[in-house]
């Protein structure tokens, strides 16, 4: 039954995706479009295999940066959200700065960071900055949305602040937090790619974005598409992993996780 449900869920998007690729492949072949203009999906797939020695290390670099940035954003975002929930003064003092960082486009910040930091650190900081805000704001919202009656109940039972945080506020904020992490995961990848493009770092620390730029300079269009496909796959994988995590954590008690099974 579970397998059937999975097939039912995956079949429609898989069909659309296959139809799109089929049309693309047919168009390139029938119209005899040169591969340096638009490579066929089959050629992109072949390039993925042929250039794996270049692309896979780049994928790992981008994945590592995204992962570290997301982890730092989780620690920083949740930590700051807890501070916000403890003190309105801290919230009023720090939130404007967080908003400034959020609304300033990362591609405008990246060149500055590259002046002060080494390229790999600058890329990491850029990815962190874009992932940080949604996690902070969502978690802060979750912590502020604690059920008032439950808070009264904890007070009545003489709960300490730490007990209230650990047993009530944090679990209650989980759905908001996980929503923020899902957004932050995708944004961390976007931040990492944007910063890599700005950094243009080559060699051992080069990520997928640099491979795209490099392939563009060499007019190796199939490799550009192959690197792009890897970025898309990485984005899908990150989103799916975080969605799965969210679903596993919330599935028995929160409507957002329950609706996915319908």
């Amino acid at each position: 039954m579970a397998l059937l449900a999975l097939v039912r869920r995956l079949a429609p998007p898989a069909l659309v995706f296959t139809a799109l690729l089929g049309t693309w492949e047919a168009f390139v072949r029938l119209a005899e479009v040169p591969s340096f203009v638009l490579p066929a999906p089959s050629l992109v797939a072949a390039t993925l295999v042929a250039d794996r020695a270049t692309l896979l290390p780049a994928l790992l670099v981008t994945l590592k940066i995204t992962g570290f940035a997301l982890a730092a954003a989780v620690v920083g975002g949740v930590g700051l959200a807890i501070l916000f929930s403890r003190s309105r003064w801290i919230e009023r003092s720090v939130l404007p700065l967080a908003i400034v960082l959020q609304v300033t486009p990362i591609v405008a910040i990246a060149p500055l960071l590259l002046v002060y930091l080494d390229p790999s650190t600058a890329v990491l900081v850029c990815a962190f900055l874009v992932a940080f805000f949604p996690i902070l704001s969502n978690t802060a919202l979750g912590l502020a949305s604690t059920d008032r009656n439950l808070l009264d109940l904890f007070r009545l039972y003489g709960a300490s602040r730490l007990q209230t945080l650990r047993l009530l506020r944090l679990p209650g904020a989980l759905p908001h937090f996980l929503g923020g992490v899902r957004i932050g995961g995708g944004l961390a990848l976007i931040g990492a790619i944007a910063a890599e493009l700005a950094a243009g770092a080559a060699g051992k620390g080069a990520g997928l974005a640099f491979r795209i730029v490099e392939a563009g300079y060499r007019l190796n269009i199939p490799r550009m598409f192959a690197a792009l496909a890897l970025i898309s796959l990485l984005g899908i994988a990150i989103f799916s992993a975080l969605a799965l995590l969210s679903n596993r954590v919330l599935r028995r008690w929160h409507d957002s996780a329950l609706d996915q099974d319908k």
Binding site: D147, L150, L153, L168, P171, W253
Partner: peptide, 8 residues
């Protein structure tokens, strides 16, 4: 309201 912790 029952005011239960839904996650527990």
């Amino acid at each position: 309201d029952p005011t239960l912790m839904p996650w527990a």
